[in-house]
Nucleic acid binder design. Structure first.
Lengths: 337, 337
DNA sequence: AGGGAGAAGTTATACGTAACACTTGGGCGT
DNA sequence: ACGCCCAAGTGTTACGTATAACTTCTCCCT
């Protein structure tokens, strides 16, 4: 019988099975072949089951010097996108006996002092989405293996990076609209200082530079319906020829653009085309459904975790960008003029 | 200087500061008043800073017998709702020096064998959203303190429960529609066997029973746009007088109902009223904006964590339901007939 | 018959931390 | 002058696990 309140240890199991603690460790660690007889092994397993034995992970971690736990830092959890990243990362992790702890931080990893805030777990490595430069150095100083998601590969101080091919997504959107005949564009940009948004702006600008006869206006807004609405409304009522297509940095911004268009009495897509980026469930809830770029969040998370596992094994992580896919729906059409 | 690759321990700090390891532990644990002189304490802190010392959490956890880490089990991460629950729980946890590890499980906690899947962290307690009965017993057997969210208080085997006052939300929605003059209702129910959805159905039915001259149809669908669309479309084209109001178990289902209404050529809210439940960002992206019930997810998470902390302290957790609030927007109006 | 190889274990140890119990030296009251 | 107390530490131990190193015993080959 269990002696009251405290959880049984491997020693309790050993006593119950009439063997030494070492034998228990061997059996339960599946290293008993040729070291313990099958009947004894079975006896140990039975005793463990009987007592409801669960290994003490703190002790195991201390002994082994590793925790098989990694930290995933995401800027926010409020979107399906990072939920998907987590799901993918956790799936791969589980296949390798790893756990994933989440640290949602509004501003990526915090300052050098206590960079992980409340993430208490003992860690083997870190996957981070957005991160201040000094925090990056702090982590590097901690010697913690690090993989960065959607970050500038040239500024990563040697950390491995895994990126979505956002630039290609922007190219696909732009080409799609150009083929439809659009020439005057509005870029509704996310007001967040992050590499992934810089890439959007840069790629869009350079693509349109190559095409004569095009014009590009840009406006910025925090990622929220209200802000996106007012920013778009202002931009569309500015004097001069009105843009015929709005390219948004993500789907939520696009939803704000929808509202702005409606408020101005513009029909989508007849009077104005709108595109997003993410392909959230929201994209198909809008009316008409949103033309957008599908980001495979789960695959992104998977690749991030695979890269981290590679680093942990001392291997070189793969370095290919994850492809993205244009999804054409009802929010884009040839311009009416 | 650090001796190469391995991370510095408290003993390294002690050596650098010229004191014993015990003194380092006292100083860094802030228990040095009256035991170590201020100047020595400062010297220790400086040495720790210099070496970039970080305590080994595995060792600390083993020594203290607790981890200051709790597990939050959520059915899915794909919605802002559980993101909010996590945010609230993590905030309260951080205030008490706790960390929160997330375990998103499609079916709540798994079967008795290895109930936490890949959640490897050593835990002090568990907060769980939805859970199979046998998994519940398994955890109880583990002696892990447990708080259950939105679960049947009578079936919780003595575990503490924290609930949103969903029944009141359903009452508010129903009364709102009744006051507008609606009498024929369609209930678009989530096809998920969970207490929180049972409450919705039960409360709605009992509320309408009390009001003579009302009728209630019900249909079920998994929480996805496509399924909600087809289910609603079928239900609305069934022979007999058409319902004038659709009450949906959550906002995502409502978005599906919007599409079904549009496909049938019904205008919202002129021809049909639609209500949701959650108040996701989606609710304000829809056109017209959705009348729904606001659930304060963060407060929910906070209360859950507070309850767990109470259990960990041996106190009795508070047992009040968290109030919810009807938010009337553009998707409800008096019936046209 | 002798010994070497393997099977079937056991004993002992280290991981890094926190805290209890102990030591030392000086200051102070009477 | 004696004892006592307090400041300022140090020595030691235990937490539960995994594993290297050791011990027995039996079997089998030459």
């Amino acid at each position: 019988m269990a002696r009251g309140s405290t959880r049984p240890t491997s020693r309790d199991v050993a006593e119950a099975a009439g063997v030494s603690q070492a034998a228990v460790s061997l059996v339960l660690g599946d290293k008993w072949r040729g070291r313990v007889s099958p009947t004894t092994a079975e006896r140990v397993r039975h005793a463990a089951q009987e007592l409801g034995y669960r290994p003490n992970l703190a002790a195991r971690n201390l002994r082994l010097g590793r925790t098989r736990t990694v930290l995933l830092v995401v800027p926010a959890l409020t979107t399906e996108f990072f939920a998907g990243v987590y799901t993918g990362a956790a799936r791969v992790a589980a296949q390798h006996g790893f756990g994933v702890v989440l640290y949602p931080s509004p501003e990526g990893i915090g300052p050098a002092r206590d960079p992980f805030g409340s993430a208490q777990a003992a860690l083997d490595g870190v996957i981070a989405s957005s991160m201040a430069a000094d925090a990056l150095t702090a982590i590097r100083g901690d010697q913690l293996p690090l993989v960065m998601l959607d970050s500038d590969p040239t500024g990563s101080q040697g950390a491995a990076t895994v990126n979505l091919d956002i630039a290609d997504g922007v190219r696909q959107v732009t080409d799609h609209l150009l083929e439809l005949g659009h020439r005057r564009f509005l870029h509704l940009a996310a007001d967040i200082p992050s590499w992934t948004f810089e890439v959007r702006a840069r790629e869009l600008a350079s693509r349109l530079c190559e095409t004569p006869g095009t014009s590009l206006r840009a406006t910025r807004a925090p990622i929220s319906f209200e802000d996106a609405l007012t920013a778009t409304q202002t931009a569309l009522t500015t004097p001069g020829p009105r843009p015929t297509a709005v390219i948004c940095d993500d789907d939520k911004l696009a939803a704000g653009a929808y509202k702005a268009a409606r408020r101005l009495g513009l029909r989508i897509p007849d009077d104005i085309s709108i595109t997003g980026l993410d392909d959230l469930a929201l994209a198909r809830a809008l009316d008409p459904e949103l033309t957008t770029v599908r980001l495979d969040a789960e695959r992104f998370g998977e690749q991030g975790m695979k890269a981290l596992l590679a680093v942990l094994d001392g291997r070189t992580p793969p370095q290919e960008d994850i492809p993205v896919e244009l999804v054409v729906r009802g929010s884009t059409a040839p311009p009416s003029a």
